[in-house]
Design a binder for these strands. Structure first.
Lengths: 385, 385
DNA sequence: CTTAATTAGTTCCGTCATAAAACAATTGCA
DNA sequence: TGCAATTGTTTTATGACGGAACTAATTAAG
């Protein structure tokens, strides 16, 4: 079964461009949209009419600006007019959110997996979908973020944490739920969230780093995500950060995996203290001034700073977003991060604005929802058929 | 005086897109161009007619492909129909080339500077222009590559090697020569050469590294160069490559400047041998097996490999071009480069194809010519007025 | 209070790029 | 020789666009 994603607008490219501009940067007046897109005022009347007619856009009041001249009528989308579901598929659990057209979270939910075989995972996903759409208007599309190599927005080529190879997850979920499903690499999804609705909105270039069980990396350049077959394999995971640091499982001394991951930090602090502590406990100890924990966490912070410097030097981003469950490191060790940045970055360069996300797992789900929104709005999938 | 660059074609965007496609990827048949640009066959007849009429494109024979069907008529530009000059402005010398529309070198020349004040530099440039256009048809545009921060394709904001700040070089050269002049950062120019006519032709992503007195870095992503205000200041110059390496002038241990530049290598080999040797002599000694030189050169090669790994990990290029006067290092120390790459790159990743340029200074001039060609073909300057 | 200036948005029309379809041209193959 | 395949041209209808003239709504100036 192949469910076709309904396009946002049947109209042509310019109509869609208007709608997209309002979705991403609205509310905007017609004349402002015309300026941004390089269209004539007359064209904007023509293009916005069917969008208003269909109810996708609405006029949401005037804007006077205090200047002379007729006040402009602001156009905006109605975010609540559409529902999307975004999910993060993990090794033993699925998290999900219901969002509106701008990826604002309306509801959340989760289910434990009963097994790792595709059929049972799909069954759990379908259960969660049922729960998340309960009492909601129709859900337009469903996005699923998976750590691994995804092809064609639906085919899981490799997902090591589930021990999957070549699973048609998208097709299976569509068959089970009846909702168009888009599968995407979780980091790409997270990055697209920042791109469309987060800290990267309207920027030409930015980078994403996530901390947690692994180190993730995403990049947007020229207002478009940089995709790569090799996403999901260690692009920055084994980056050398500290020539005198600990050794990772594959023998790299002081690599990102050995210095920056939550397990590495928890293990190092545990060893120093002679007792088992969790990652968050290790951070708490460091924050409260415990010397050994402080040293480990500062080393990690400095490593993060060096990684940030590397990203900044080579990709020249306008901002960098830090996310992932382990992101609190960047706050606890802020000084060390700054020191690491200073060490590897020319002092004449401008400082890079950092955005630190909450570390909540819901962020990943919003990313997956954004992938669904994008497919719906841009009609990507149809383009690729 | 403001000389306006003549546009390539007065026509609209689609006409220009056809001409550009043929310039960059030609010769091509009409149907092939139609496929690449997503146009109908009828449109291609219409669009190509005025280009053939104007003499910019010509039919250059048939292509049968051994298949059935009517053979296609290949369209191509006539490279020799236009002349461009490209120059590299250095601390005490100007190099220049005359090229055709595809940046093929027709003539070369050089002049020593008589001083570093803008007026005398412009006079020398004008002299070189006169020499380079001698006996040639009209020169369409002139590109000048300058190490430093350039604005608006003509204004030298900073050029440390000439001790210049805020020099309207483009306007001055235009006034002196009567030829539209485009000034650009030398690395951007070099990168654009590779982008349009070199190893990066047709690629979505690639990176450029140049070796010499400094370490240069250029990046193309999504078929467009990544520009940055900070080009020219040390983005990769002080990259940490070797925690046990020598110290640079600014106190970084084992940074790119201390390990990879020609002066650093020459100095290290000289010190080891107790006598002054040049960079090229140092490479020759290493190639012939002299142990101390071999060690220094291999250390540098390993550093280059690590830098390549960093670029590859963070920008995911389809290829990397190595250029600059010091590029022979990459050949002499090929094994060490490979070792450095291996050390910092996940073994599961695909190897990155390397292109090693000749190291001839003419390469930089071709880059400057490409910038002139681009401005002429795309009419960039006009867009920005 | 009136008028001018300014900006927003609409209506209408001519232009022109485009796709579609029919057709001509050229080749390989049966 | 006839048919299939492919390239390229011609013709035609559609429709998107910009531009101009217009209406609308507001402020500033007199």
């Amino acid at each position: 079964m192949r469910i076709t994603t309904p396009r946002w607008t049947p109209g042509n490219g310019a109509t869609r461009a208007v709608a997209l501009e309002v979705l991403l940067h609205g509310p905007l007046s017609r004349s402002e949209v015309a300026r941004r897109l390089g269209l004539s005022p007359g064209s904007l009347t023509r293009l916005s009419a069917p969008l208003l007619e269909s109810g996708l856009l609405v006029e949401v009041g005037e804007q006077a600006d205090g200047k002379v001249g007729r006040p402009s009528q602001l156009l905006d989308v109605v975010p609540a007019s559409k529902r999307f579901i975004g999910m993060k598929l993990m090794a033993d659990e699925v998290l999900g959110v219901t969002t509106d057209l701008r990826a604002n979270v309306i509801a959340t939910g989760s289910r434990r997996l009963k097994g790792r075989d595709p059929a049972s995972v799909v069954a759990v996903i379908a259960e969660l979908v049922t729960s998340l759409r309960h009492g909601m208007p129709d859900v337009t599309a469903l996005g699923i973020g998976v750590g691994g190599l995804i092809e064609e927005h639906g085919f899981v080529r490799r997902a090591p944490f589930l021990e999957w190879n070549d699973v048609s997850l998208g097709t299976m979920v569509e068959a089970e739920t009846g909702i168009p499903a888009i599968v995407e690499n979780d980091l790409i999804a997270f990055t697209e969230y920042e791109h469309w609705f987060g800290a990267g909105r309207g920027l030409d270039r930015f980078a994403v780093l996530t901390l947690g069980a692994g180190i993730g990396y995403g990049l947007v350049i020229h207002d478009e995500i940089v995709r790569n077959d090799e996403f999901g394999i260690g692009l920055v995971g084994h980056w050398p950060l500290d020539p005198f640091g600990p050794v990772c499982s594959e023998g790299h001394r002081g690599c990102a995996k050995a210095v920056l991951t939550d397990t590495a930090i928890a293990a190092a602090v545990s060893q120093a203290l002679g007792k088992q502590v969790s990652y968050q406990a290790a951070l708490n100890l460091a924050a409260s001034g415990e010397a050994a924990a402080r040293r480990v966490v500062d080393d990690a912070g400095k490593g993060l700073g060096k990684l940030l410097a590397a990203v900044a030097n080579l990709t020249m981003p306008e901002t960098v977003v830090l996310g992932g469950e382990g992101v609190r490191l960047a706050e606890i060790a802020a000084d060390a991060v700054a020191a690491g940045l200073r060490a590897d970055r020319d002092p004449r360069t401008k400082p890079i604005p950092l955005t630190i996300r909450s570390g909540d797992n819901v962020e990943w789900c919003r990313g997956a929802a954004v992938v669904a929104i994008q497919t719906f709005v841009l009609g990507h999938r149809s383009d690729e058929n």
